[in-house]
């Protein structure tokens, strides 16, 4: 294990410059699925602060504690050239009231097609893919999910308007996602009838109060395909503190709606991200 890590480290060190030239906060936070974004929505931004010919690695840990459930998410990311982003996340969803847990792995890749978040009139536009695989599929299968794994494909557009409101910079993001997932995959993929993708809209707005502090809101439309219980849209309100280019902390209050028949799941979200 140590040997592998050392070899990996040596490989990383032979790559182009490790530097962080981009402006603070332009890497966003890391979403619960491992992709750079807000907390629940992937944005068009590439994680970390690497610019052209630079790369960075990220690590994150997130905990969302709502009334009857607790989600733990943790993962790693690698970005280069402010063009590509690779990510891995493990989610553990604890059923505090019902008992048991649901886990899934998420592999993500994101490609920036065009645009520069801060500089171009055109928004920054990225295409992303998330491959999700459930590790405790018995329960999702029992409630009607068809498949253990699924693929989300999304197109995201993000732009920052400098000096937009009271001298502050405003970030708007819109994401369209094609998904098969029930409760983002935590309840498997598809239903008895179909495993087809559905198009969902997700959006975020954030205002940078200072170079280091942002406040914002997010919305994530969700399908409702399993007959056993209603699935509802997610939303949150957040504050993110970019301590420096290496560390950021995000806190949010999230409303995840009904989950698995338990109504109105609300609670706190806390996430820490490191970037090198």
């Amino acid at each position: 294990m140590i040997r592998t890590s050392l070899v990996l480290l040596c490989c990383l060190l032979t790559l182009p410059a490790l530097a962080s030239s981009r402006v603070l906060a332009t890497g966003g936070a890391t979403s619960i699925e491992g992709s750079a974004g807000g907390g629940i929505v992937p944005w068009a931004v590439i994680n970390g602060y690497g610019s052209d010919d630079e790369w960075s690695i990220q690590a994150f840990g997130t905990r969302v504690a709502v009334d009857d459930f607790t989600l733990h998410a943790a993962g790693l990311g690698y970005s280069w050239d402010n063009r590509w982003e690779l990510s891995y996340a493990r989610q553990q969803f604890k059923l505090d009231t019902l008992g048991g847990q649901l886990r899934q792995d998420i592999l993500g890749i994101k490609y920036r097609i065009t645009g520069q978040l801060l500089y171009t009139a055109l928004p920054q536009i990225s295409l992303g893919l998330q491959y999700k695989r459930h590790l405790d599929f018995d329960l999702p299968a029992l409630v009607g999910a068809r498949s253990r794994s699924g693929v989300d494909l999304y197109l995201a557009a993000s732009k920052v308007w400098l000096d937009a409101i009271a001298g502050r910079n405003l970030l708007l993001n819109g994401t369209v996602r094609a998904t098969q997932a029930n409760q983002t995959g935590l309840l498997g993929f598809g239903n008895e009838h179909s495993n087809r993708h559905r198009l969902m809209f997700e959006g975020s707005a954030a205002l940078l109060l200072t170079h280091q502090l942002a406040v914002g809101v997010e919305f994530r439309q969700k399908p409702n395909r399993l007959a056993f219980a209603d699935e509802q849209h997610w939303r949150d309100i957040f504050v993110a503190w970019f301590v420096n280019r290496k560390l950021s902390v995000t806190a949010a209050y999230a409303d995840l709606g009904d989950i698995a028949g338990l109504p109105s799941q609300q609670g706190w979200y806390l996430s820490v991200e490191g970037s090198w």
Binding site: Y119, L162, D163
Partner: peptide, 18 residues
């Protein structure tokens, strides 16, 4: 320089990127 003034100046310079 106040943060809002920094942003006003950056907003004028950013479009010069291309």
């Amino acid at each position: 320089v106040p943060y809002s003034a920094q942003n006003r100046l950056l907003a004028m310079l950013a479009p010069m990127y291309p």
